[in-house]
Design a protein around this nucleic acid. Sequence first.
DNA 1: AGGTACATTTGATATATATCAAATAACGTT
DNA 2: AACGTTATTTGATATATATCAAATGTACCT
Lengths: 187, 187
Amino acid sequence: MELLRHAITAISPLSSESMNAYLSAWKHWSAPKDHFLLREQAVSDYIYFIEKGVARIFYYKNDKEITEWIAMDEQFFLSITSFFNRTPSHLIIHTIEPSEVYGIHHNDFMRLADQYHDVEKLLRKMVTGSLILSQIRMDSIQFETAQQRYDRLLKHSPQIIQRVPVSYIASFLGVTLETLSRIRSAK
Amino acid sequence: MELLRHAITAISPLSSESMNAYLSAWKHWSAPKDHFLLREQAVSDYIYFIEKGVARIFYYKNDKEITEWIAMDEQFFLSITSFFNRTPSHLIIHTIEPSEVYGIHHNDFMRLADQYHDVEKLLRKMVTGSLILSQIRMDSIQFETAQQRYDRLLKHSPQIIQRVPVSYIASFLGVTLETLSRIRSAK
DNA sequence: AGGTACATTTGATATATATCAAATAACGTT
DNA sequence: AACGTTATTTGATATATATCAAATGTACCT
């Protein structure tokens, strides 16, 4: 839980009272490699934090797996539309390595945000960070070639190639595995 | 200013004290048709609100105009990366009809968010709304064809076709004008 | 170690959209 | 109304990536 506390403080510091109330709202899950931490719930209204390991977050769209995110290294992640709109995303969390994952429920987060100004500010900063990432990703999908997106990923998280199967990376980058394979062999 | 007050309240209500402080931080611009309200500043760190008229928000990318947003009908808009990252976006606001536009500076908004819990909550809700839109748009760009994106726009804001030149709509949809022309003629 | 399932690569072809180029239409100005 | 300018349409071709199909490579299981 120390890493979670630290990650929160890095985004926006909380008073000790807020921090205690907030941290106690987080639940913890532990999973071995290749395990389904969350499986097609109706609505996935949690914000997650991965303390250790690697997890793939995906859903089915027309019977195809869409990798929405690959989480590792003390990252927060969530299914944005599901979390905020309360619409079903059928989110699935699948561990790629033995992993420790935390999650806080939408209702708990909102209740605490109403109660504490600094928790509200934390939430705002988390959403803002998510928005900036969303914009960068949109720009990347709209204007960059598959090659450029792959290069960007390599530069930004080089370890991902060693730890995650190519097929997941392809879906995450928004290309087919065949295309990614060709990009990689052209190097 | 009444429409702005109303739009704010619809997102998240403010106490009368917060509302007074907040509204007085907004500036107002008035412009005839085909006028440049904002021209390539270094950083565009305002959130805008269009009270009346239509405005196009765009920037240059490799000497090409990219229409980031077409604002009308009492909508808020902003250059997300520029506003939150404080990086230059060279944003240009160009009116397509005579327009009344309001704007609040990043610094003022942040100062008031620190001061009033309900302003912080308003900001969080605005960012959240923006994030949801960003996700919908990304999904649309990644998985829908140009035809589907055009249909979606028609359904969502049918008036836009009458009021905005095709070339701007094309750029907003992320296609060339030739492609949009063909889509339209195939109907 | 051998076999089976799965992951990755390689090849041939199809498709949506961009690009380049030209023709036509609409629009504003005097 | 006629002119030049700008917007839109139409046509021919190029390109990135998807799709379908098969071959090769790798890893897990008893």
